[in-house]
Design a protein around this nucleic acid. Structure first.
Lengths: 155, 155
DNA sequence: CATTCTTTGACTAATGTTGACTAACATTAT
DNA sequence: ATAATGTTAGTCAACATTAGTCAAAGAATG
C-alpha cells in the first residue's frame, strides 16, 4: 500500500467504490471538502490516475447539479497494436501516413470496413480544411490518437 | 441517470410522456408550477433539450388557450434525413449540438453504436484542440458534414 | 542538486436559474 | 370595426453554481 500523499488516498477512496459498482459519481467540491484539499486537486487525481490507459472513462458536467463521473471499462486485447500505432504517430502526421495506419487497423480486424472509411474521412485533407498544412498535420495527429484511444475499450 | 438539477427532471418528465404518445401539449405556467420554477425555465429546457438536432419539433401559441407542443419527429420518414441534418448544422456547431445529431443518427439506425462513438470522439472539444473556440466550431461543422456525406454511399 | 510529483489558488468556461420586459393572440367593451 | 384589456408564451441579460485549466510554489525522490 502506498498511502503517503493525499492524492493516493483519494485515488484509493474512489477505487474502493469502483470495486463494488461500475462507476462513481461525485460532486467535486464534496470530495475536496471530505479530504480537505482544493477542488482542483480532484482534477489532478483524475488526470493522473484514472486515464483511459488504466481503463477508466471520465465524464463531467458543470453548472447547477454538476458532477464528475468515473466509469470502469473493459480494455480490449488490441492494446499492443494501438500503443505501437500511437507511438508511430507522434506530434504530426500526413494524410498518407494516417491512411496507412487506418489500413493497418482494418487488416488487424480492429475496425470494420465502414469504420475505417469514416476514420479516413476524418483525417482527410478536405475534412481538416485548414490553410496551414502543418497545422492540419498536427490536428490530424491529435484526431488519430483520440480515435485510437477510443478503440481501447468496448461499450 | 443524471437528474440532479431541475431542468433534467423536467426533461425526463416530458420525455416520459413522449415515450407513450407522439407529442406533448403543455401550458407553460402549469408545468412551471408543477416543478416550482419560473415559466421561462420551461423555455430553457426546451431550447437545450428538445431541439431539432435531438429529433423534436416544437410549436407554440400565445394568448388565451395558448400552449407549447413538442413533437417527436422520425427523421427516417423524411425523404432525405442527411440533407435535413446538414442544413441544421450550418457553418459552425457546438459540441453539444453535434453530439445531439450523432445520437439522433444512432437512434434512427443510420449508424452503429461504435460508429457513433467514433464520430463523437471526432467532434469532441478535446480532439479538436484549438485555441480559438469559433475556429473549432467551424471545423466541427465541416467534419460533421463530411461524415454525413460519407454516409450517403453504402460500401 | 536536479528532476519529477504534488499541492494550491487565481482565473476561465459551461450550465442552470431567475425575473423584468416584450410580443402575440383572445375576449370584451365601445 | 376598433380599442382596450386580459392571457398566454418568448427573449434576454443578470446572477448562481458548478467543473476545468494553468502555472507557480512546495515536497519528495534519486
Amino acid at each position: 500500500m502506498e498511502g503517503q500523499n493525499i492524492s493516493d488516498i483519494i485515488e484509493q477512496y474512489l477505487k474502493s467504490i469502483l470495486s463494488d459498482s461500475e462507476h462513481v459519481e461525485i460532486r467535486r467540491s464534496e470530495i475536496a471538502n471530505l479530504f480537505d484539499v482544493v477542488p482542483s486537486q480532484i482534477n489532478y487525481v483524475i488526470k493522473t490516475r484514472f486515464t483511459i490507459q488504466n481503463g477508466y472513462l471520465v465524464e463531467s458536467k458543470r453548472g447547477g447539479g454538476g458532477y464528475i463521473r468515473i466509469e470502469r471499462v473493459n480494455l480490449l486485447d488490441d492494446v499492443d497494436v494501438l500503443n505501437t500505432l500511437i507511438s508511430v504517430i507522434g506530434d504530426e502526421i500526413s494524410e498518407r501516413d494516417a491512411v496507412s495506419i487506418i489500413q493497418t487497423l482494418y487488416d488487424e480486424d480492429v475496425v470494420s470496413r465502414r469504420e475505417a472509411d469514416l476514420m479516413a474521412v476524418m483525417v482527410s485533407k478536405q475534412t481538416l480544411a485548414l490553410t496551414d498544412r502543418q497545422v492540419a498535420d498536427v490536428l490530424r495527429a491529435h484526431v488519430l490518437v483520440s480515435l485510437l484511444n477510443r478503440l481501447r475499450y468496448e461499450s
